[in-house]
């Protein structure tokens, strides 16, 4: 078992087979740096619980193909990314920090699916981005492909 500690000082025990899906922790274990608790100063307990849930489910990924549990895993993944937008980004940042490739792929794809067809305004609001383009620069981009800024599929809602 490997002990992980979130930035709000909560400890979690995870099976080594599950936790080594994180390249970062795998390297720490291989280098002998994981003898006691591994502190994760960038991850809060709420996010860490989600990550551990994913790691535990994906523990036998290789076996899933043989035992026909692939559909089960697919269903789990679909349910897993069904979370709030902010939460999704917390998991993305955690997966990036822990270097969990598959989790990163899953969550980035979900983020992309949600951003697709959004309006410029909606994207700015969803990602908390301040527009730093001048009016002229903005107009130049619009003039370059005005058709990309109109259409019934463009979604101005933020969710």
């Amino acid at each position: 078992m490997v002990k992980l500690k979130s930035n709000d000082d909560k400890e979690f025990e995870v099976e080594e087979a599950a936790v080594i899906q994180s390249e970062m922790i795998k390297n720490m274990i291989e280098d002998g740096c994981a003898t006691s608790v591994i502190p994760l100063p960038n991850i809060d307990s709420k996010t860490l619980i989600k990550v551990i849930e994913y790691l535990n489910k994906h523990i036998n990924m290789g076996k899933a193909a043989e035992t026909g549990e692939e559909d089960d895993l697919k269903e789990f993944d679909e349910q897993f990314v069904n979370m709030g937008w902010e939460e999704l980004f917390d998991v993305i940042m955690a997966a990036n920090y822990l270097n969990i490739h598959e989790l990163m792929e899953l969550c980035c794809q979900s983020a992309a699916d949600r951003l697709k067809n959004k309006s410029v305004r909606a994207v700015r609001e969803m990602l908390k981005i301040t527009n730093d383009l001048t009016e002229e620069e903005e107009q130049e981009i619009i003039n370059d492909a005005p058709w990309a800024f109109e259409g019934p599929e463009i979604d101005d809602t933020v969710n």
């Binding site: 992309a112 410029v120 619009i142 492909a145 990309a148």
Partner: peptide, 26 residues
Amino acid sequence: ILFDILTRIPSVKSLLRFRCVSKSFC
């Protein structure tokens, strides 16, 4: 991370539009 997410958006139309979000997006 933004780069990774945006490459997963299949719609070129959306991407052309998203250049207007900010300088870094562009």
